Each structure stands twice: as structure tokens, then as C-alpha cells.
Amino acid sequence: MVKKAWVTYALAAGVLMGPLAPAGWAATGDAGAPERGGSYPVGVVETRAPLNVREKPTVYSYVVKQLHPHQKVQLECQKRGGWVDGNPVWYRLHGSKGWVSARYVHNLRPVRSC
């Protein structure tokens, strides 16, 4: 019982200290809102072949460019679009007028809604 309580306290402290600790989320300069002067969340392309960046959040939209496997990209926001392998979420790329399916991009931090 004592061990279970200690683990619960340790997890709670980690959750509370994560955003506040010197090496936590706040140290990156972003708490999920770029309009407060922070950077945008980063995502990593999780494919073996180039990933198409689309004009709109659907696979039927024009391809505007491609991303390389394991490439890091800045994610501006997310919204629901066309389903890709059971995932309806799409990310708008920062600095580009393109969208990528969240099915193939692993976000390293939460991404705000568009």
C-alpha cells in the first residue's frame, strides 16, 4: 500500500513539475500557443517514402510538395479532414500553405486546433 501511494505521489509531482521544471516544456519557449511568442510544435515524418504535402486536408487535393522520411517540420495547427488509414486528423505546416496527414507525422508536443 505504501509503495502504491509513493508511486502515485511521484507521478503527480512529475506531471506538475513537467511544465515548470528547467528542462520541462516551458523551457522550450512554448506552452502550445505560438501567439504568445513561442515556437510551433514540431513533428517528425514517419514514412519510408516521401510524404505528400496537400493543398487541402484531403487525399484528393493537389500535392504542393513532398517531405522526406524522418524530416522534422513545424506544425501550425490541426483539423479534421479526409480519413487516412483510420485517422481523420491533418496538420497545417507552418510557413507553408500545405497539409499533411497526422497518420504519417508524429507530433512531439500537442498541436492546437485551427
Rank of each mutant, 00 (worst) to 15 (best):
V15N: 04
W6L: 14
Y104D: 11
P69E: 12
A23H: 10
W90R: 07
P69A: 08
R92E: 01
Y9D: 04
L16Y: 08
S101D: 11
Q71F: 03
P69W: 04
V64P: 00
K4V: 10
P34I: 00
V64E: 06
P22R: 03
G37M: 00
G24K: 08
G38P: 07
R92L: 05
M17N: 06
Y91L: 02
V105A: 09
W99L: 06
P41E: 10
W83R: 14
K72F: 11
A10W: 11
K56Y: 02
H94F: 09
S101H: 09
T47S: 14
D30K: 00
E76I: 00
K65L: 03
W90V: 06
S96E: 15
D30N: 14
A31N: 09
A27I: 00
L51E: 05
V105L: 06
V44P: 00
K4S: 15
K79Q: 13
H68M: 10
L93Q: 07
S61W: 10
E35H: 07
A49V: 05
G29C: 00
Y40D: 06
E46G: 02
D85S: 14
G38I: 01
W90A: 05
K3Y: 08
P88G: 09
G82R: 02
H106F: 13
V42D: 02
Q71K: 05
S101C: 12
V111R: 14
L51Y: 11
D30C: 07
A21M: 13
A12I: 13
A26I: 06
R54G: 01
V105C: 04
L67F: 13
K4W: 07
A26K: 03
D30L: 05
W25T: 15
G14L: 13
L20Y: 11
T8S: 14
V64I: 14
V7H: 01
G29M: 05
V73Q: 10
N52G: 07
V64M: 00
K79G: 04
A33Q: 10
E55T: 02
A26F: 03
G32A: 12
G86T: 10
S61A: 15
G86F: 11
E76Y: 09
N52P: 05
K56A: 12
P69D: 06
R103V: 05
Y9R: 05
Q66F: 09
V105F: 00
K56T: 08
A21E: 09
A12H: 05
Y104P: 00
A31H: 07
V63Q: 08
A33P: 00
M1S: 15
V44L: 02
R103A: 15
G24N: 06
G32I: 02
L75Q: 04
V53P: 04
K97P: 02
N87A: 10
S113K: 13
G43K: 04
V100I: 13
Y91I: 07
K3M: 13
T47A: 08
V44R: 11
G95L: 08
Y62Q: 06
T58N: 06
P50K: 04
K72Q: 15
G81E: 12
S96T: 15
P110I: 00
P19L: 10
T28K: 00
K56F: 01
T47W: 02
G43Q: 07
A102E: 08
V53H: 11
